[in-house]
């Protein structure tokens, strides 16, 4: 049974595959620590998490995962250089205040970074925007503009562009639509993009 079957979040399944056995992993915005608990159990990683929501932090600690309750952006600053093999940021990049700083910090404290984000250029998002003339609302972006936690909207192309500009080495890209892998036209077809990348 994979992570996907356990938790139903397709990016978890992919991330579970990307992380190597016995490594040091930091999960930013780790929720109740499900992914870390799975990685600990199945890949024997040394896992840590950062999470804002107290109830989630408590669940994570109660399940044996070491989680720090705090804001992830300032939290990143405390870690020493190269402290981890992987830093994971799943479905949270679009909610951070300074995404570029976050990504750079991730590569400072870790050899590799794994980022999963909802693709704002997915055709449904484009359709919603075009047909309604309002801020797009889809399953991936379900919020009204005024109560959305998402404050930075990015697409597959945007990330590729940034990686090139920053000189990051993209080691793996995985594009998902539901539980299916997307192999063509990812910027149009992918609902979620997962990148494994490192500083060059």
């Amino acid at each position: 049974m994979g992570v996907r079957d356990i938790y139903g979040r397709s990016d978890y399944a992919i991330i579970g595959d990307l992380v190597e056995h016995g490594t040091r992993v930091l999960d930013l915005g780790c929720g109740a620590g499900e992914l870390l608990a799975w990685l600990k159990e199945n890949k024997q990683v040394d896992g840590r998490g950062v999470e804002m929501v107290g109830a989630d932090v408590q669940k994570a600690i109660a399940s044996g995962v070491s989680v720090y309750q705090g804001d992830l952006e300032p939290a990143l600053e405390d870690y020493p250089d190269h402290a981890f093999d992987y830093v994971i940021l799943s479905q949270t990049l679009q909610q951070t205040r300074h995404p570029l700083q976050v990504l750079r910090s991730m590569l400072r404290i870790s050899k590799r970074a794994i980022v999963a984000f909802p693709n704002f250029a997915h055709w449904r998002v484009r359709m919603s925007h075009l047909s309604s003339g309002r801020s797009p609302r889809t399953e991936l972006f379900p919020y009204e503009w005024y109560d959305s936690p998402n404050i930075h909207f990015l697409t597959v192309l945007d990330f590729e562009h940034l990686a090139q500009k920053e000189g990051w080495k993209i080691e793996r890209r995985v594009f998902l639509a539901g539980r299916r892998n997307v192999t063509i036209l990812p910027n149009l077809m992918a609902e979620v993009a997962v990148y494994l990348f490192s500083a060059r």
Partner: peptide, 9 residues
């Protein structure tokens, strides 16, 4: 800052 194993709540 020392990358110690710490949980905080």
């Amino acid at each position: 800052s020392r990358n110690c194993d710490v949980a905080y709540c």
